[in-house]
Amino acid sequence: MISEAHLPQILALFLFVVGMTIVLLRRNTIVLLMGIELMLNAANLSLVAFSRANGQLDGQVMVFFVITIAAAESAVGLSILVNLYRNFGSINTDRAKSLQG
């Protein structure tokens, strides 16, 4: 029987898989960054739910750190995106293939 400990884990799994699919399928770089945020959020949800189920607090402390790193990651990602737009006139990942051999 599904309980209130299982429910957030299943949601976290679903959100992670959807975020991964977004990162793998979409070409729009800003949506891709949102997919990464979704995956980080799913990992956070799993950590908090496990910390609750085990009666420990370390998971919530980890989530605090992950949120900080996610803020830094999105700031750097969006500034890279602004540069990508300046150089290619588009934020589609198909256009940015200068490193392709």
Partner: peptide, 20 residues
């Protein structure tokens, strides 16, 4: 983590300002 945050934010500003 606070040091990592400030380094990343300074890096983001530098990246966005500079012309590549």
């Amino acid at each position: 983590v606070s040091i990592a945050l400030i380094v990343a934010l300074i890096g983001a500003v530098t990246l966005a300002k500079r012309k590549f």
